[in-house]
């Protein structure tokens, strides 16, 4: 899905935990996530911290979308 959407000319950022799979599939902008069952959260955290964590990851993804890349890039 990442590739076909990007092929259509839409910029895509892939947020995922197992970044090597994303590299293999062919995503160009990759942002690492927290864990497989909760990529954008952490049930161990108080709710407000969890939202802040999610916002940080989404902001990082927006930053990735605003950054020119030559090839596959993981935004750590």
């Amino acid at each position: 899905m990442v590739k076909e959407i990007e092929r259509a000319g839409i910029a895509v950022v892939h947020i995922c935990t197992i970044t090597p799979i994303s590299m293999t599939v062919g995503a160009n902008r990759i942002v690492p996530a927290v864990a497989i069952p909760y990529p954008l959260g952490d049930p161990k955290m108080p709710h407000s911290d969890e939202v802040a964590l999610r916002r940080k990851i989404v902001e990082k993804s927006l930053n990735a979308l605003a950054t020119e890349v030559d090839g596959q890039t993981i935004f750590e």
């Binding site: 899905m1 959407i5 910029a11 950022v13 947020i15 995922c16 996530a33 990529p39 954008l40």
Partner: peptide, 10 residues
């Protein structure tokens, strides 16, 4: 008219 997609995977 969408320009950008956030795609999440588990």
């Amino acid at each position: 008219g969408v320009n950008a997609v956030i795609l999440t995977s588990t």
